[in-house]
C-alpha cells in the first residue's frame, strides 16, 4: 500500500527517528512503512493519522488495481 508518510514527515522536518519516537515504535518500523514493505495495523495507522492531524485515507493510498476492482463492483 502506498502512503505519503515520507512527504508528511519532510514537511515537518522530522527524521524517521523523530516520528518513531512519537509513535513509540522502532525507526526500522517507520522505514518499512514508508517504503511500502510493511502495512501498519489499524491501531498504528490511527496513531499515525492522529500525529499528523489527518485521516487515514489522507495518508494511506489504495492501490490503483484495488480501486479499479472496487469501482467495478
Amino acid at each position: 500500500m502506498k502512503n505519503r508518510l515520507r512527504v508528511l514527515r519532510a514537511e515537518r522536518q522530522w527524521s524517521q527517528q523523530d516520528l518513531a519516537d512519537r509513535l513509540e515504535v522502532s525507526r526500522q518500523s517507520v522505514n518499512a512503512i514508508e517504503t511500502g514493505k510493511y502495512d501498519p495495523s489499524l491501531p498504528l495507522a490511527f496513531r499515525i493519522a492522529d500525529i499528523f492531524g489527518l485521516t487515514i485515507e489522507q495518508i494511506f493510498l489504495r492501490d490503483v488495481a484495488e480501486q479499479g476492482a472496487q469501482a467495478a463492483q
Binding site: 513509540e24 515504535v25 522502532s26 526500522q28 518500523s29 518499512a32 512503512i33 510493511y38 501498519p40 495495523s41 498504528l44
Partner: peptide
C-alpha cells in the same frame, strides 16, 4: 514485543 513490525 510492543512494536508490531519487530513482532512480524
Amino acid at each position: 514485543e510492543r512494536d508490531e513490525f519487530q513482532r512480524l
